[in-house]
Design a protein around this nucleic acid. Structure first.
Lengths: 181, 181
DNA sequence: CCTACCGATCGGTAGG
DNA sequence: CCTACCGATCGGTAGG
């Protein structure tokens, strides 16, 4: 059975999420997808080059089937937040955050992939919120929404406690409902 | 000049903060403190054993000169939150969060040190808040305060933007002031 | 897509 | 507190 690119990216994401950039090894990745390590290098030129597709896939999943210009912005906003929260709770850690913390300064491609990931995530939320808020307010609300969801992963990681995440999600949704004039 | 234990712990913390558990190497640590790697092992039996003192030192700094039973709880609460926020902004990353994400499952001493760190941090905040709130409410408020401060490190790390952290701090302090009857 | 290998580095230890 | 070393593993490559 052929090993697809997506299969490799999915497994790489799992490794980055669990072990961080430094802790994820190309040998582990090869074992997971059933290839020899050298064969990975026919698809990806380096470990660093895996970061961009890993985060691109995650963005795709987060915004799949979200119509940015529909006027049911509240439903879209709720859907995206719920997806993010569910992902962080089910998978325990946030790949993006783990990479933001762990990608070394001498991996510029990976660094900019991480920046782009969070910028796109935030911009996606801003675009939805713009239907109810002005630009400045939408930016603040989107930024703080990501702050509380990412921060809440802490308790999932260390105590296996999803309650802070659920509380954050509930508060964010309640806040958004109040925006509807 | 003798290399003190504290010097080693301080530098180990810097390495864990910057590179995470897996990315921090004992050789780097030895170079930083001016010892040969083997000499580190006369003080600490393993890399894993560094985690506990690193986090203990951080807790000490966070709660230094805070009198838990004074009735100026609001000043204490503000002081502790400001210290945490300043530390996270100045040093860019949170050691505790980086370790929470990165400590491997086969390092049980380190894992429990991380759990203990966040439990103690939260309990310290709860003890202060108990002067104004009941137990359940104090626990929720303390947990969510840590969530927003830790989450705000994201933007410090990736965009070098301290504003979400400042906003989180301001909101938490405003919230606390409202608790005063 | 493989076998086989590279130099570098990892955490940790022997022995003084 | 050092020199010198251990086996294991790292990211990556040569050559087919």
């Amino acid at each position: 059975m052929k090993t697809s690119l997506e299969q490799i990216v999915v497994e790489a994401r799992e490794l980055f999420r669990e072990h961080g950039y430094a802790g994820a090894s190309m040998q582990d990745l090869a074992d997971r997808v059933g290839l020899k390590k050298a064969s990975l290098y026919t698809r990806f030129p380096s470990k660093e080059a895996l970061v961009e597709p890993v985060l691109a896939l995650t963005l795709e999943e987060t915004f799949a089937d979200i119509e940015g210009d529909a006027d049911n912005w509240l439903a879209n906003y709720e859907a995206v937040l719920k997806r993010i929260a569910a992902e962080l709770t089910d998978r325990t850690r946030c790949v993006g955050l783990h990479l933001a913390y762990g990608v070394p300064a001498d991996a510029p491609q990976a660094l900019s992939a991480v920046q782009h990931y969070f910028a796109t995530l935030r911009n996606g939320l801003i675009a939805i919120l713009r239907h109810a808020l002005n630009a400045k307010r939408a930016a603040t609300v989107a930024t703080d929404a990501l702050v509380s969801l990412e921060g809440a992963t802490l308790w999932v990681v260390i105590e296996d406690d999803p309650q802070p995440m659920q509380r954050a999600l509930k508060n964010l949704i309640a806040e958004a409902r109040a925006f509807e004039a």
